[in-house]
Amino acid sequence: MTDMIAALDPADPAPVPVAEPPLAPRVQEPDHSHARTTRLWHWVNLVALITLFMSGLMIFNAHPRLYWGEYGNRDEPAWLVIGQQGPRGFLEIAGSRIDTTGVLGRYEDGEGQMRSRAFPGWATIPTDYNLADARHWHFFFAWIFAFGLLFFMVFSLFNGHIRTMIAMRRAEWHPRALWRTIVDHARFDFHTAPGEAYNPLQKLSYIAVIFVMLPLMIVTGLAMSPGTDAALHFPSMMFGGRQTARSLHFIIAFSLVGFLILHVALVIVHKPLTLLRGMTIGHRR
């Protein structure tokens, strides 16, 4: 739609009324710009996710132990513990302990005071221990996150975002094609096929994030709620219990942070300004 000018061939001496659009696929720079709904959702979602993550870390601080199954408490074995022993902080996963003094378990606050806390104040909302306030932040932004995701999904279905940009073509599922794109990525070659917005690896990671991980954050979150659990039963049962849901909530949250870091890193090494522009003000004119 933006390429009316490109459709006119400057080499043609006698321009006739545009009757036949070019049939052959044109090799051109992908536009990199996104629909208005996508751009809006992207930034709203970023703010929501960061707030959810940081208030979530504070909520975790209230009981920095994770379990599998339906229940778990201080009298039951935990698969992950962040704690302190004397002046040292530690992280323990499946029985193996590493010293994390300064970051996890024990940290120095802004006033130079050593504090015993699973996640340090600089990573949590609010900074100081306050379970009630962290929950207020968490639930408020959970609504923004959940309904934002819902609207984005609905819009993306109708405006063709999923079909034209994210859906995997049949050929892209071929193992050789997948291997090819992995090798390309390892070489910092992020090219996309002609006419495609993303390469298969990008598509797969967006599918995983938008359609698997983000919805799972909502479902595992709701699975922890006694009220939702009484109403629906299935969210916690499908994960094998409330504490498993809580563990998954934690694991997926950190996976999303991993995605965020990778996503930003790839934008920076690829075409930071073009991509940032495409996700903010949109189309080039």
């Binding site: 209230a62 009981h63 339906e70 229940y71 778990g72 408490n73 379970l131 922890m224």
Partner: peptide, 12 residues
């Protein structure tokens, strides 16, 4: 039933 504490732990 399962007792769910606001802190995050549960007990049956």
């Amino acid at each position: 039933t399962r007792h769910d504490c606001v802190e995050g732990w549960s007990a049956i």
